[in-house]
Simulated scan of single mutants.
Amino acid sequence: MPTTFTDNAKVMPKGQVTIPKEVREVLGVQSGDKVTFIVDGTTVRVANAAQYAMRLLQEEMRGEAEQAGLTSEDDVAAFVSSMRGDG
């Protein structure tokens, strides 16, 4: 399935739309999952809410490990161990 395509959905009286199957598959969403609407002017992108939140968190945390002096896996393991009270 191509990752760039267009599809249409009808807006129902209460503003609801059914996300087309192909779009749900690309987003990795199923019944009960949440989606995020990213609005930029008159353009709207739809994203898997969990994946979008994780991406924002990763962007926000970028560089934090280095600033905390965690530059290797051993540093991270020691930090986690200290937080758990293991050592």
Rank of each mutant, 00 (worst) to 15 (best):
G32K: 08
Y52G: 01
R84G: 03
L70M: 11
M83T: 04
L56C: 06
M61G: 02
E73W: 12
D75N: 11
T36H: 06
Q30F: 07
E73T: 06
V46I: 15
R24I: 00
F37S: 01
P20H: 00
M1E: 11
V29D: 05
P2S: 14
T4F: 07
A68N: 11
V76K: 03
D74I: 12
T18V: 11
A65C: 04
Q67P: 04
M54K: 15
L57R: 11
A50G: 02
M1G: 10
A47L: 10
D86V: 13
V39S: 03
D74V: 08
V46M: 13
R55H: 13
R45V: 10
N48Q: 10
D7G: 03
K34P: 02
G85K: 15
E22F: 02
F37C: 05
E64H: 04
K14A: 15
S72F: 07
E25A: 09
Y52D: 15
L56Y: 00
M54W: 08
P13L: 08
D74K: 07
Y52H: 14
V44C: 07
S31Y: 08
R55F: 15
Q16L: 12
V44M: 08
F37E: 03
D86L: 15
T18A: 10
K21M: 06
R24K: 00
M12W: 14
A49P: 00
M54H: 05
L57C: 05
L27C: 06
V17N: 01
T18Q: 07
L27N: 05
F5E: 00
F37Y: 01
G63A: 04
T42C: 12
L27W: 09
E64Y: 13
V23K: 03
E22Q: 00
T4N: 01
G63E: 04
E59M: 10
L57T: 12
N48S: 04
V76A: 04
P13K: 05
N8P: 04
Q51G: 10
V44G: 05
E22G: 00
G85V: 13
N48P: 01
T3M: 14
A68Q: 14
A49Q: 14
V11P: 01
L70G: 01
Q51K: 13
A9L: 11
K34S: 11
N48T: 10
T71Y: 08
R84E: 15
V11L: 14
E59W: 09
G28M: 08
V23D: 02
A49K: 13
N8L: 14
G15F: 15
R45H: 10
D40Q: 12
A77S: 12
V23L: 14
V29L: 04
K14T: 14
D86I: 13
V80Q: 07
R55L: 14
Q58T: 08
A68Y: 10
T43E: 10
K34H: 08
E22C: 03
S81G: 09
M83D: 03
T36F: 08
K10F: 15
A50I: 09
Q58N: 01
R62S: 09
I19A: 06
G32A: 08
R62N: 00
